[in-house]
Write a protein that binds this DNA or RNA. Structure first.
Lengths: 183, 183
DNA sequence: TGTAGCATGTAACACGTTACATGATTAC
DNA sequence: GTAATCATGTAACGTGTTACATGCTACA
């Protein structure tokens, strides 16, 4: 059967520096959400499994100023091996799911104004996402503290390019549908 | 909880003309696969449910030259209503899942050559997908037999734009990583 | 004769989401 | 004081995939 990939974003983030499950979830939300998602229901059990398998370890010194009430994990050598192995293996098939396109395809069965509304809504969402990426890029560019700085920019660039493509399509399609409106 | 959307591509396709579950699956594969997927395990049970709820009906005349061994369904007025209702409702959140970007983000933990290989593979896949869409567009353009002809072209255009964005990103990223190769 | 595709279906599975529960801390 | 956020977790659920079973047809 298909294997869950939840462990890899966890290992990858812990390879940068130690953090808690909560931190991991937040980072995945802000950095990856346009191409990857994980929920607490996956992350916390996975942290337990990874600890048992020795790929990550619990950091015990809860005395640190940052560590109040937090369960902080760090990656082990075994975990870094897993990460390296994964990077060399083929990727799972890319998956995209866009209900909007289904609706555009079947638009003839409903009101034109409804579809136009849906596209406008979609457009707004994508514009906001793009704005967030642009902001993130701006914040990141001057900072050289991460050695994977350039790789992050590459990932950002992917998001920017696709969002721009989406927006272009929205504008074209809205314009096209509006020109058909009077019929 | 989240509702399955399987019924809508089925209703939409049956609104064009009657067909079997097998036909539906094939059409979803060739026309929608770049933004939507369904498996037999969803389609066949859903056809049964839709028949029970009266949104579709079985066509009985298996005597037609095309009907050997086929279970052909057609949409009912009630089914068309469901379709119309759905078109007016808000879309579910768009979802994208791209393991490749995760690997690019964490590329520092592995070999550069591995990542380059993965991107090259991804690029090839997207190029083939784009070629298929272009071919589909060519086949479709002269035909005016469908009244949703222009809507199909809009959906195709979405795929073409995003695939071109993907390819552009692949080329940029490969070029960038190769320039870093000697380090 | 056998393999490939057509065609319909189902059972098992696991993946991921949602909803809930709990308690601590921060801020107004 | 109370609302929001931090923080950890789990149970239940539904969706969608995979694997399997079956039989028929085309064709080489």
């Amino acid at each position: 059967m298909k294997k869950s990939k939840t462990k890899y974003p966890i290992l990858g983030l812990l390879a940068e520096h130690p953090m808690s499950g909560y931190d991991i979830k937040k980072l995945i939300d802000v950095r990856f959400s346009f191409f990857w998602n994980e929920s607490y229901g996956q992350i916390y059990p996975e942290l337990k499994r990874l600890t048992e398998s020795g790929e990550i370890e619990l950091i015990e010194d809860a005395a640190t100023p940052e560590g109040r009430g937090k369960t902080v994990y760090c990656i082990t050598e075994s975990g870094r091996d897993s990460l390296r192995d994964w990077l060399a293996q083929p990727c799972e098939k890319a998956s995209v799911r866009l209900e909007l396109l289904l609706k555009v395809y079947f638009a003839q069965n409903g009101n034109l104004s409804d579809i136009l509304c849906q596209i406008a809504l979609f457009r707004e969402e994508q514009e906001q996402q793009l704005a967030m990426l642009n902001l993130f890029e701006k914040d990141l560019t001057p900072i050289r503290q991460y050695d994977n700085h350039e790789d992050i920019l590459r990932v950002l660039s992917f998001g920017q390019k696709t969002y721009r493509a989406y927006l272009e399509w929205c504008d074209e399609t809205i314009h096209y549908l509006e020109s058909r409106q009077p019929s």
